Simulated scan of single mutants.
Amino acid sequence: MFPQNTPFPPKFNDALQEREYLKKKLTGAFRIFGKFGFSEGVAGHITVRDPKHKDHFWVNPFGLSFNLITPADLLLVNHKGDVVEGNLPLNKAAFAIHSQIHEARPDVVAAAHAHSVYGKTFSALGQELLPITQDACAFYKDHTLFNDYSGIVNELEEGKRIAAALGDTKAAILQNHGLITVGHSVDEAAWWFITMERTCQAQLLAMQTGEKLIEIDHEVAMKTRAELGFPLAGYFQFQPMWQDISVALDFIRV
């Protein structure tokens, strides 16, 4: 499906080298989210599972701009909520949500959540995305709706319910809240969030016309999802953005 010499995710024999790679990728993802304006005050977080301690994850500190985060700023947190590395404060909502997702989904390496404008606007509709565009098909029958908003997520029980609603899909619309996406890499989780936000925007714009929305046929939508919505496709589609941000920050290209 991919051309010859297509770059694939690197493999590591050394967990410490992989950790440094993942922290750089996580930092770049935050810078890209900042570039897209996904930040909303102190809201929003992306996490990546630590390759050495599987019940630990790296996360952005509470109250630090996406545009300023460096690998040294990231916090290493265990599933008990202890900050193992880092001196900055931990976002309680980030821990409550991400710890439960990482625990429930051993296959998930990274997860992304933010209060992006179109995602939170679409979430107020209390419905899933329709397969009305090619890009929307990446989420066809592979995202869910969490329709049990009960306020700011500060308790583990809320995180457990979000993880249960997510199930084995790549994304969830958190009603009256926003979007959350997961992936087998930082690249994949970040890309699903970016394209899901744009898909919400596209459907909202289409709905504003007042015209009937033409949905893609089920079989065609499933075929398109198979071509666009698998993990390596998510990883690969993130790479042009990573190339831009890694040059700007003088990151090592990995």
Rank of each mutant, 00 (worst) to 15 (best):
F33A: 15
M222N: 11
R49N: 09
A171F: 07
G210R: 02
Q134T: 12
M207C: 02
I132M: 09
I101L: 05
E155Y: 04
G210M: 00
P3N: 08
E211K: 11
L74D: 11
D168R: 09
T195Y: 14
T70Q: 14
G229V: 01
L166I: 08
I194Q: 04
L174C: 05
G119S: 12
I162P: 05
E215P: 00
I97D: 08
A164T: 11
N60L: 04
V247C: 07
N154A: 06
L228W: 04
D142S: 11
N13K: 13
S65N: 10
R198H: 14
R31A: 10
L129K: 04
I162D: 08
F230V: 10
F36R: 09
L228D: 03
G63P: 05
L90N: 10
G63I: 04
V153L: 09
P231I: 11
P89C: 10
N5P: 00
F66W: 06
M196R: 09
M1K: 10
I152N: 05
D73R: 06
T70S: 13
H102G: 03
A114I: 00
F122G: 01
T169L: 02
L16Q: 12
F30C: 10
T133Q: 10
L125R: 12
M241R: 11
N13R: 12
F30A: 00
L125C: 02
D217N: 14
P89F: 12
E20G: 09
V117R: 14
E158R: 10
H102W: 03
E215L: 11
